[in-house]
């Protein structure tokens, strides 16, 4: 199809550009300004050059939270993507029950993040929470306020509960777009269930799965509210992921320069991943 090309259409983007400038570009510029200065409050700033960047890059604390961040993101992706695809495959393709499943699946996505954190906080308490009490009753020592392993288990389980639905819905949409003729052809050829999945369903879901992985990666990489409400980054620093560490540095310790340098490094990482996924999606579409 021949597309009409009119560069004047770019002017239509101006309002968006204005809004983005106010809520993203101006704050980002301010963060860049903070990252090269030191302040003791009162709007007095002292130029420090790249000192904060060198400090953050060499800081063990930053390395640790970055490592925890990658561990968290990697773990939830490894669990949520296959689980989501698996659930989507078992959902009814049409009729009353498919609607019921869709609504049930969408429910966790509708709950605000701080509520999810508070819910799981109570749910996992070892003395009164159903999960915590139940596990202890079964003889499994579980106390997410004291044991790092329990805290990690709860944080990951919470994220899986909250966000697997997103992967399910996207994968389901991908599956629904497959024409019935493909399945008929596979049946005639006597293809196994695995072959149908491998050669029909998976390739057809490729685009939506890329988007699902991108969304889940970005969301989990920037996660703050849920673990903050659930564990507050503890016990100790066990579940202090990047964003929690950043807020601690910026608001807890009022280390604006260090926090700004951290933010920029954090931002560059998300930007790189975003660009990689965007390139994957757009270049994939062209093929």
């Amino acid at each position: 199809m021949q597309k009409t090309l009119n560069n004047k259409a770019w002017f239509m983007v101006l309002p968006v550009l204005f809004i983005v400038a106010l809520n993203a570009i101006v704050p980002l510029m301010t963060v860049v300004n903070y990252s090269v200065q030191d302040t003791f409050g009162n709007n007095l700033f002292f130029f420090e050059g790249t000192r904060w960047f060198s400090e953050v890059l060499a800081s063990e604390r930053f390395h640790d939270s970055l490592l925890r961040q990658f561990f968290f993101t990697f773990t939830i992706l490894v669990i949520e993507v296959p689980l989501g695809v698996g659930i989507a495959l078992t959902m009814p393709r049409r009729g009353f029950w498919s609607s019921v499943c869709l609504v049930l699946m969408a429910l966790p996505l509708l709950i605000p993040w701080n509520v999810v954190g508070a819910m799981w906080n109570i749910y996992a308490l070892p003395d009164i929470g159903l999960l915590g009490y139940g596990l202890n009753w079964l003889g499994i020592p579980f106390d997410y306020t004291q044991q790092p392993v329990s805290a990690w288990f709860t944080v990951i389980l919470m994220d899986v509960w909250h966000w697997t639905s997103l992967v399910v819905l996207l994968a389901y949409a991908g599956l629904r777009s497959i024409d019935d003729n493909y399945y008929r052809a596979a049946q005639i050829d006597g293809a196994s269930r695995w072959a149908v999945f491998r050669y029909i369903q998976l390739p057809k879901m490729k685009h939506v799965l890329t988007i699902a992985i991108l969304l889940r990666f970005m969301d989990s990489f920037m996660i703050y509210t849920e673990p903050f409400v659930l564990t507050g980054g503890g016990p100790g620093n066990a579940t202090t992921v990047l964003s929690i560490d950043l807020v601690k540095a910026a608001l807890g310790e009022f280390n604006l320069g260090v926090a700004a340098a951290m933010s920029i490094i954090y931002f560059l990482m998300t930007l790189l991943v975003c660009w990689l996924f965007y390139t994957l999606i757009t270049q994939g579409e062209k093929k």
Partner: peptide, 14 residues
């Protein structure tokens, strides 16, 4: 724009 804490170096950068 004082709240943005501009320096000539960052100004030059942008």
């Amino acid at each position: 724009l004082s709240w943005m804490a501009w320096t000539w170096q960052t100004g030059l950068f942008f």
